[in-house]
């Protein structure tokens, strides 16, 4: 697949290029926002990794432009030096599909790229049973088994866990989660989601030791991250 890397720092570009190519994809790089825009009109890409501070037309402006000018647009991963969560949620709300804060580990970057490409390719199996690391999900019984032990979950908790596992390494907005699980965003106390996630986290003991962690993107949503065993 064709992945666009839009950044003006050669070191960052070559790092990302190596990650993308390692995963068996084609990497195309731009160091100017305006040139990028022209290319996006002419060509089709499967993923855009966009730097916040790219010269010419910056990241946020490019996002806005894409929303207005492109009928079909690739998913966008925003790259930023800024770790201020406000900036991140701004980017996500402006149309970015995910984000990576520089510097990030090679494995994390790879996982995020793959998750994005998978979604774009219509990923997400609906087999009756699925295995994610040490967690086995039985979608018919709605149970999760870890190390041979079955963990009892409520229907909502199972749906939440399933949603996360299926969308591992993708950032999900709160609205998306609530619409998917509760079929509504209205009349739902904001704390309800937090508390469900908290319970899923404790019951399944989702922590790096077990190969997963739930990451809160404050002001936007959540992400289940898979932890690479070896760095």
């Amino acid at each position: 697949m064709r992945v666009v890397i839009a950044d003006d720092e050669p070191d960052v570009v070559s790092f990302l290029k190596s990650v993308v190519e390692e995963q068996g994809h084609v990497a195309v790089s731009f160091s100017d926002g305006n040139l990028l825009s022209q290319a996006l009109v002419r060509e089709t890409f499967d993923l855009l990794i966009l730097d916040w501070n790219i010269p010419g037309k910056d990241g946020l402006a490019t996002l806005e432009w894409m929303k207005q000018s492109l009928t079909e647009r690739p998913p966008v991963i925003m790259m930023t030096n800024r770790s201020a969560k406000k900036d991140i949620s701004d980017a996500l709300n402006a149309g970015a599909d995910d984000y990576i804060t520089k510097p990030e580990d090679r494995s994390v970057v790879a996982a995020r790229i793959n998750a994005m490409l998978r979604r774009n390719a219509g990923a997400g199996a609906f087999d009756s049973k699925a295995v994610y690391g040490k967690y086995s999900l039985d979608r018919i019984e709605q149970t999760v088994t870890v190390d041979g032990k079955t963990i009892a979950l409520t229907a909502k908790e199972f749906e939440l866990a399933d949603l996360f596992f299926r969308n591992a390494d993708r950032t999900l907005s709160r609205n998306y989660i609530m619409e998917t699980i509760w079929r509504t965003t209205a009349a739902l106390a904001t704390r309800t989601l937090d508390m469900h996630i908290s319970r899923v986290r404790s019951k399944l003991d989702l922590q790096p030791e077990n190969g997963f962690r739930i990451f809160t993107v404050f002001g936007y949503g959540y992400r289940l991250e898979t932890i690479a065993k070896a760095v």
Binding site: R191, D194, I197, S198, P208, I214, F215
Partner: peptide, 15 residues
């Protein structure tokens, strides 16, 4: 401020 479940926040910090 916004409403934050403190236990999860601490856990994620540790994560």
């Amino acid at each position: 401020g916004e409403d934050v479940l403190l236990a999860d926040l601490v856990r994620e910090a540790a994560d």
